[in-house]
């Protein structure tokens, strides 16, 4: 069996505060296989973005280890490309130049033509073939994030890190970009980790959904294997009979770990505990009927 592409062992993050050290993450463990797409969900402030930034090498590790391709990471690098929540393109550069900046670093020995071709290939893939020479400042947010995706894929990274990449977009554009991302990813099969708030997005895109407990001392609370076959279409996924079970499972978990508990949330507290406890015994199978009915109930107000 191949060793995992990404291995995170006992990861810990402590921020010093005036009231003493604040432990955001502790005992965070995750193994990701080559070519796997992982979605990480959890409540805001649970430390999922922190974890992602630590993998990227943009945030210091307090304790524990992160290894990519069996090698301990050392700072940031183009082998772990990041798509940030805000597109963070350089507005004074054109679309092409923004992508070229990274490609120049990764393929220093290629000719300029070869490097440009790589950039154009990915920009075409994300549907921006006709906007190569537009200044980034003139692009809409959705187009900017398309460039962000092209820039990340063009680096040919070992791991692709997506930090709520569609969080700032309206729902129509978000759906469009999910399709774009999925299409490019289907071709490349780059190991990907995506932090998201959106349960449907997680189910549509990922192979496994990692649910994080609420911080402090956040860790992996539960893992759901997404059973839908690839290549997926939104239609197929939404019509799959297992879809609502999966969705219910995720929503149950999130409700159980809601910090500002509503009365219903309090009621479901016990359920979530069982969900956490049951993660070792049964990770992906359909849940009990009680849980599904509960999930249906949740749907009404989520």
């Amino acid at each position: 069996m191949k060793p995992p592409m990404l291995e995170i062992v006992n990861l810990k993050k402590v921020y010093p505060t005036k009231k003493g050290p604040f432990v955001v993450l502790e005992n965070f463990n995750l193994k990701v296989d080559d070519g796997e797409f992982i979605a990480v969900i959890g409540h805001s402030g649970c430390g999922k973005s922190t974890a992602l930034m630590m993998i990227a090498g943009l945030n210091d590790i307090s304790d524990g280890n992160i290894a990519v391709n069996s090698r301990e990471i050392d700072g940031a690098g183009p082998d772990r490309a990041v798509v940030f929540q805000s597109p963070s393109l350089f507005p004074w550069m054109t679309t092409l130049e923004n992508v070229m900046l990274g490609v120049n670093r990764v393929y220093p020995h290629g000719t300029k033509k070869q490097r440009e071709d790589i950039c154009k290939y990915y920009l075409n893939k994300v549907g921006l073939g006709s906007a190569l020479n537009k200044k980034a400042v003139d692009l809409s947010n959705g187009m900017k994030q398309r460039v962000g995706i092209a820039r990340a894929f063009a680096l040919k990274p070992r791991v692709l890190l997506l930090d709520e990449p569609f969080g700032m977009l309206d729902s129509l554009t978000r759906a469009e970009l999910q399709d774009v991302l999925l299409e490019v990813w289907n071709k490349e099969k780059i190991t990907a980790i995506m932090v998201t708030h959106d349960v449907d997005e997680a189910l549509y895109l990922s192979d496994r959904v990692v649910m994080m407990t609420s911080g402090p001392y956040a860790k992996v609370g539960d893992v759901l294997h997404v059973p839908f076959e690839r290549p997926r279409t939104r239609h197929n996924v939404n019509d799959d009979p297992r879809y609502y079970d999966c969705r219910g499972h995720l929503l149950d978990f999130l409700n159980g770990h809601d910090k500002d508990k509503t009365p219903e949330g309090l009621a479901s507290d016990d359920d979530s505990k069982t969900a956490t406890d049951s993660k070792n015994s049964n990770k992906s199978g359909p849940k009990s009927s009680h849980r599904s009915s509960h999930a249906q109930k949740e749907l009404k107000y989520v």
């Binding site: 990227a56 090498g57 943009l58 700072g75 940031a76 690098g77 183009p78 772990r80 490309a81 990041v82 940030f84 805000s86 963070s88 350089f90 900046l101 990274g102 670093r105 680096l155």
Partner: peptide, 14 residues
Amino acid sequence: IDKDYINVAKVLKL
């Protein structure tokens, strides 16, 4: 400067 710009620079190892 936008922190993300610096982060991009770090990821690209400029």
